[in-house]
Design a protein around this nucleic acid. Structure first.
Lengths: 200, 200
DNA sequence: ACCTGAACACCGTTCAAGT
DNA sequence: ACCTGAACACCGTTCAAGT
């Protein structure tokens, strides 16, 4: 008979990363409410007390998950940004990337924007949000310099555009809006955001 | 010594309503994650199995809470709507009412827009959302008839405006945006929504 | 019809002890 | 430094039995 490769070593190696990966799998499959630390430990092959070494409690694991979510979203947006594009196309590309991420990672995004109770964590998350919207901020600032966007605090205008986008993503996530329709309408959304709802 | 009014009767009277009220209290005080059916039963003065008579499980109670939330929001919006107002003022008043509700009932609103797993419930919630946005829909349709709003499917334009508003509410709830600042900027938000971000 | 009490199979968290 | 095993105080849900 062949012997199994090796019995599980006492030290896992990178238990923290393994727990985060496992947690995200169940998040995707069954939602945040169904996540159990004990089950996660079983799936990862460690004792139920082991996660406690890496995350002070369950909320800490969820918070860590939210933070990595923002990091990934940030990279997605950076990859989708093309400063050479005309403003409407550039904004549409960014918006499509944001919405695509929100559709593909609905449970994670819900977690990312959930209300937090720990002030330390909400500070970290606020900083992560700041980094995430940087591509939008640059777009707005660039366009303002060219006179293509209304004057005003670029940070506030960015939040406004981001809010519109996030609202669409939220409506899509909770089923008010079918994902395909949302993606198809992204050009319209951006157009209305830029040109307004009043006839001109 | 005075005798206490009466020992608790076997039948509660309206346990269902009492449970919903209690649940919303702890929702407001400690968030949805901290809600325990057993604790709720204790506070309400019934056995821990009693809630099971009125709600099939914990999720059913949360779903019921979300539905009552939409009903209350609907009434709030209807009360705030004044069809006699010029469009920008009318929309601003509705937007202020929505945002005010979202700020005063942050945990409830989070629940209302949470992803659902039961398809029956998401259908009911979709219908509730439909009723909630009716005032916005009327506003858009009225204004379109007067040529004050761009032509196009009024339902879609309403969802667009609603998404922008909801995004602001979400950013406010999760701390990206201080509530007072959000309320103060509501006029700007509506103005940008109507007139767009491009100079005219 | 409505509620109770006991039971079952889970949780999250802590902490001495092991490697 | 990292993990285990046992223990503690909880959960949600079910179901016979009581009023």
């Amino acid at each position: 008979m062949m012997r199994m490769p090796e019995t599980r070593p006492y030290h896992h190696g990178d238990l923290r990363a393994a727990l985060l990966a496992g947690a995200e799998r169940t998040l995707r499959a069954k939602g945040a409410a169904a996540l159990s630390l004990r089950e996660l430990a079983r799936e990862t092959g460690v004792s139920h007390a082991a996660p406690g070494r890496h995350f002070k409690d369950k909320q800490a694991l969820l918070d860590a998950l939210a933070l990595t979510g923002f990091e990934r979203l940030t990279h997605t947006l950076e990859a989708a940004d093309d400063p050479a594009l005309p403003i409407e196309e550039r904004l549409t590309a960014l918006a499509r990337a944001y919405l695509g991420f929100a559709i593909d990672n609905a449970a994670l995004v819900e977690l990312m924007y959930a209300r937090k109770h720990d002030p330390d964590v909400s500070e970290q998350l606020a900083a992560a949000v700041e980094r995430t919207i940087t591509p939008f901020l640059h777009l707005i600032a660039d366009a303002q310099q060219r006179g293509e966007i209304v004057p005003g605090d670029p940070e506030r205008i960015t939040l406004l555009a981001g809010a519109g986008l996030h609202g669409i993503a939220a409506f899509t996530a909770n089923g008010t809006f079918p994902p395909q329709e949302a993606l198809d309408s992204i050009g319209d959304v951006v157009h209305h955001l830029l040109h307004g709802l009043r006839p001109r």
